[in-house]
Amino acid sequence: MLEKVKQVYKKIEPYFHVKKPWDSIIILVLNILIAIPLFMILHQNLIDLEWPFQLDRILIFVVLIAVIQLLLRILRRVTLISIFIYLLFLIYGTLIGNYGFNRVFEDYRAMLFAMQNNPNPQDIIISKLLPFPNKSKVIAAVEFTNPKVRNFALYATTKHFSDFKTNEENRKMVQCFAVFKEIKNRWNYVNDPIGREYIARASETLQHFSGDCDDHAILMAACIRAIGGTPRLIHTGGHIYPEMLIGSKADLELAILLIKDKLFVKESAGKQIHYHFDERGQYWLNLDYTARYPGGPFMSEEILGQLTLD
């Protein structure tokens, strides 16, 4: 069997010879595509030596480019064959509407955005958190099946980003961001009565889009859940804010790309994306009323309790 494979390889191998200087150009382009994300990983995880003009980072990048270039040249024939097969796969995926060139481009950009905007999120260990205050009242107030709440959430999805081309994988995420935008644009902060913790139902808050932090969190959670999302509320002592489940690391990269490059470009320009990940490795995005975009800065880093609404 091994001999047959070798014979087949010897027959097709001459067809993959690339004339100079195109072989060097292909290897250089591939080198850059590999080196940039690797350098970002090293840059974020290695200690900054604080050399003048960031010379330590420049040295790392130069060494990385040299090592990758050497490896690609040693494996030049295998590399070129692999690239050819990969291109055929992408052409086939593009033609049948599956994983093609556009998806590769979007995934690569998403990865770069995520690497550039890592705020070193806190790992929330759920088992160590305190009981959520007024838990039964809050759950009852999240009226995600109430027709008024559902209709408002649907209205938000038609008002914002409805012309944005999307697919089944990220449609729900975009629609949840539309809900965030509409509530954010309307929200008016009003304190509770003195000496009383007033918890308004989501349908009640819809009348004037006014209330304090827990009223906002309850309304946001109800609307997110009404269109199929998974929200949770975070208790920080003097503040409650909502988060939405993003999912895996790849889902987070997609969310960051959508926020910074598509949907909230001005609001998030030059800003970091803030999120948490739980003990199961799932990522949650901040949707606080104090944030101008999904994943905006946390009002408080202290976390005392959480309530997942699924």
Results as ranks from 00 to 15, higher is better:
residue 1 M to D: 11
residue 2 L to Q: 09
residue 2 L to A: 01
residue 6 K to L: 09
residue 7 Q to N: 10
residue 7 Q to V: 05
residue 11 K to T: 09
residue 11 K to W: 11
residue 15 Y to I: 10
residue 17 H to P: 02
residue 19 K to E: 11
residue 21 P to I: 08
residue 21 P to W: 04
residue 21 P to A: 04
residue 24 S to M: 06
residue 29 V to N: 06
residue 31 N to E: 15
residue 33 L to N: 07
residue 34 I to E: 02
residue 35 A to R: 05
residue 35 A to P: 13
residue 42 L to C: 11
residue 42 L to K: 05
residue 43 H to I: 07
residue 43 H to R: 14
residue 47 I to W: 07
residue 48 D to H: 11
residue 52 P to M: 11
residue 54 Q to H: 14
residue 55 L to R: 10
residue 58 I to R: 11
residue 59 L to S: 13
residue 60 I to S: 02
residue 63 V to C: 14
residue 64 L to V: 13
residue 64 L to R: 07
residue 66 A to N: 07
residue 68 I to K: 08
residue 71 L to A: 14
residue 72 L to W: 12
residue 72 L to N: 12
residue 80 L to W: 00
residue 80 L to E: 08
residue 80 L to I: 15
residue 80 L to T: 09
residue 82 S to L: 15
residue 83 I to E: 12
residue 85 I to C: 15
residue 86 Y to I: 09
residue 92 Y to D: 07
residue 96 I to D: 11
residue 102 N to S: 12
residue 103 R to A: 09
residue 106 E to I: 12
residue 108 Y to L: 02
residue 108 Y to F: 15
residue 110 A to K: 00
residue 114 A to C: 14
residue 119 P to Y: 04
residue 120 N to Y: 11
residue 121 P to G: 05
residue 129 L to W: 02
residue 131 P to R: 08
residue 132 F to H: 00
residue 133 P to F: 09
residue 133 P to W: 08
residue 134 N to R: 13
residue 140 A to P: 00
residue 141 A to W: 02
residue 144 F to V: 02
residue 146 N to R: 02
residue 149 V to P: 00
residue 150 R to A: 07
residue 152 F to C: 00
residue 152 F to K: 03
residue 153 A to Y: 10
residue 155 Y to N: 08
residue 157 T to L: 06
residue 157 T to C: 12
residue 158 T to K: 11
residue 159 K to Y: 15
residue 159 K to N: 05
residue 162 S to W: 10
residue 162 S to Y: 10
residue 169 E to S: 13
residue 172 K to P: 03
residue 174 V to K: 01
residue 179 V to K: 00
residue 181 K to F: 03
residue 189 Y to I: 07
residue 190 V to M: 09
residue 193 P to C: 09
residue 195 G to I: 08
residue 196 R to F: 13
residue 197 E to R: 07
residue 197 E to W: 11
residue 198 Y to Q: 14
residue 199 I to L: 09
residue 200 A to M: 11
residue 200 A to N: 07
residue 201 R to W: 09
residue 202 A to M: 09
residue 207 Q to D: 14
residue 207 Q to N: 13
residue 207 Q to I: 10
residue 215 D to K: 05
residue 217 A to E: 00
residue 218 I to Y: 08
residue 219 L to R: 04
residue 220 M to W: 06
residue 220 M to I: 10
residue 222 A to Y: 03
residue 223 C to G: 05
residue 228 G to V: 15
residue 228 G to F: 14
residue 232 R to C: 02
residue 232 R to H: 01
residue 232 R to L: 13
residue 232 R to G: 01
residue 233 L to N: 03
residue 235 H to S: 02
residue 237 G to C: 03
residue 238 G to Y: 05
residue 240 I to K: 00
residue 241 Y to H: 12
residue 241 Y to P: 01
residue 242 P to Y: 02
residue 242 P to D: 03
residue 245 L to T: 10
residue 245 L to A: 08
residue 245 L to N: 12
residue 246 I to Y: 06
residue 246 I to C: 10
residue 247 G to W: 10
residue 251 D to I: 08
residue 251 D to L: 04
residue 257 L to I: 02
residue 266 K to H: 08
residue 266 K to P: 05
residue 267 E to F: 01
residue 270 G to F: 04
residue 273 I to N: 03
residue 275 Y to V: 00
residue 277 F to Y: 15
residue 277 F to A: 00
residue 279 E to C: 06
residue 284 W to C: 03
residue 290 T to R: 13
residue 290 T to W: 02
residue 291 A to V: 03
residue 293 Y to W: 08
residue 296 G to F: 01
residue 296 G to P: 01
residue 299 M to D: 12
residue 302 E to V: 05
residue 306 Q to C: 13
residue 308 T to N: 06
residue 310 D to A: 10
